[in-house]
Design a protein around this nucleic acid. Structure first.
Lengths: 143, 143
DNA sequence: CTGAGTGCAAACCGTTTGCAGGCTC
DNA sequence: GAGCCTGCAAACGGTTTGCACTCAG
């Protein structure tokens, strides 16, 4: 929620180096371009934004970088209209409240998941291994 | 949960006629092919299954029919690996427990959603309009 | 008999991949 | 320097669309 906005490049460098990856100008620019916005973006949107800046970045590089970041746990994806949307977010937390008006994405505290889990295992006799939830509505600002 | 397995064609005919659609052999065959299985299938899988039967059905027809059924509220979709998966299911219930072993899909009773909603509106000050959840694990049979 | 529905093939579009050259480590 | 990374363009794969024909109402 806060640690990420400090020093994109040092954080990123450490994370990449630890996994045998390199810190390139392109990767840095891509991360800067969407690290601090709490919203889902498509690869094409990101590419368009970067293209507007300075010299060129290939669309394929955007895709490859996003996939790398996803492997590193820095990015979550979501599908929408046959398009993959990417969100720079804290690892291992997959409940998001998406504002349908401004697009802002907030993390959802999910204590209630444990309750769900109990209900499933007793009621349905279903052993929950993984869940995926997405919430849409209006954030505090837009309500 | 049960009404659908009775008479696919009469139910379907009524639903289609009421919305200005026609009951064709193809639509009937498509519905029969997956109405009673509680699992997500892709258009291609469905098409392959139908092709194995008797005379041909075009893949495009499968897509168009699935889209029509979705508009009628008889089918829910989910994305997986860039593919759209379709589930014949009760309208207006969007919480499913998917068995990762056998693929069976059960409805999830979701009383707890109200609790979530309350938490979101007070804690995050987020006005929940829509939510989408999917649960993966092992069903009673496979556990 | 009219037009919604169909089969086929081509078009579409988001994503991936092959390859020659570049730049990080 | 070695080889990971990049840009470009072509390939890929799921889905949609145009068109002439068919058949349900």
């Amino acid at each position: 929620m806060k640690a990420r906005s400090e020093r994109p490049d040092s954080v990123l460098r450490a994370r990449l180096a630890g996994t045998g990856h390199r810190l390139t100008k392109q990767r840095l620019r891509i991360v800067e371009a969407f690290a601090n916005q709490r919203r889902y973006v498509s690869a094409r949107q990101l590419h368009a934004r970067l293209r507007a800046q300075t010299n060129n970045i290939g669309l394929a590089t955007v895709y490859r970088t996003l996939e790398t970041l996803r492997e590193l746990g820095l990015v979550t994806t979501s599908q929408h209209d046959g398009e993959t949307l990417y969100l720079f977010c804290a690892p291992a937390h997959h409940h998001h409240a998406v504002c349908t008006h401004c697009g802002r994405v907030d993390d959802v505290p999910c204590r209630a998941v444990a309750r769900f889990e109990r209900m499933l295992s007793t009621g349905l006799r279903f052993r929950l291994m993984q869940h995926q939830m997405e919430f849409y509505g209006l954030c505090a600002r837009c309500a």
